[in-house]
């Protein structure tokens, strides 16, 4: 549904952010985009939404060129930025004036979610806390029934119960026709809700695998001594031993530790990607 080919982008000509960005994203998936600060996560989301224009290369989203901002494209995409401000009005009025733009907007979902997030429609938006505003925006975004939902650090500012509710919302309203992209630092908040992990570094996609493929390929173990294991791909010292990344074919399927995976990819992406290639060939 999203096809990016040889995309080039920079804010300042001298410091290129993306030179040859290539990535395909498909419906029916919840993508998690990981990367260091400044790696280009937010920029990628904005390019997909058509808020930024590629300097060269191709970017096609749902059959549209985002840059054109075709209203039929905009009806099917919703972007939740990390920071934003609502107009000063009540929740009810905001919904009334904005929902009409989205032909598939579902008021029942909106009501349910406002209930779930404990937001009353009569509240004035500018009196809400940042976390409440974020929940309102998430609720609205989900209710639009847009095909593509882009979320930049959606769990930032949410309290613990709200984070849990956020995961429930994703599990409830995500389906095979929709494509969710979540950019995040807080991997733990989204652990089991993602089904594809994308890592970008220095303007390139250096890792792109589904949870199932990761499960089949990599094994996440904890050992007391590194000598207990052969074929270690990556290890990290922790209290009382080591967290270890190895190949599943040697050690079986385990729960995925995305943080450990992320560290491993950053320290040695070639070895990790090699493991996936080998698994694929088997």
């Amino acid at each position: 549904m999203i096809k990016i080919e040889e995309l080039e982008f920079y804010y300042k000509r001298k410091s290129e952010l993306f030179q040859h960005l290539n990535v395909d994203l498909n419906e029916g998936k919840v993508y998690g985009i990981l990367g260091h600060n400044g790696a280009g996560k937010t920029t990628l989301l904005k390019l997909i939404a058509g808020l930024l224009f590629p300097k060269s290369g191709k970017c096609s989203v749902n059959g549209f060129v985002p840059k054109e901002r075709n209203p039929y494209f905009l009806q099917e995409i919703f972007y939740i930025p990390e920071e934003f401000e609502f107009p000063s009005t009540t929740i009810a009025k905001y919904i009334k004036t904005h929902s009409g733009f989205y032909p598939k907007f579902d008021m029942n979902i909106m009501d349910d979610l406002l209930n779930e997030f404990e937001l009353s429609v009569s509240r004035k938006i500018h009196n809400l806390s940042f976390g409440q505003k974020k929940k309102l925006l998430i609720a609205f975004a989900v209710s639009t029934n847009c095909k593509i939902l882009l979320m930049d650090e959606p769990t930032n500012g949410l309290d613990i119960p709200s984070k849990s509710k956020f995961r429930k919302v994703i599990a409830s309203y995500f389906n095979d026709d929709r494509l969710f992209i979540i950019s995040t630092h807080q991997v733990r908040d989204l652990d089991n809700i993602l089904d594809t992990i994308i890592v970008i570094e220095k303007g390139e996609v250096i890792f792109n695998q589904t949870i199932e493929e990761i499960q089949n390929t990599l094994s996440f173990q904890k050992v007391k001594n590194l000598s207990e294991m052969d074929h270690v791909l990556f290890s990290e010292k922790e209290f009382g031993g080591f967290s270890v990344l190895a190949e599943s074919k040697d050690f079986g399927e385990t729960k995925i530790d995305i943080e450990l995976l992320y560290k491993a990819i950053n320290s040695n992406k070639e070895t990790i990607n090699e493991a996936f290639k080998n698994e694929h060939n088997n």
Partner: peptide, 18 residues
């Protein structure tokens, strides 16, 4: 002109012409 609102405006499903 408002950094915290402009994306909402640009992404509101209406054409630039409208």
């Amino acid at each position: 002109r408002d950094k915290l609102k402009s994306h909402f405006y640009l992404l509101t499903p209406g054409s630039n012409f409208e």
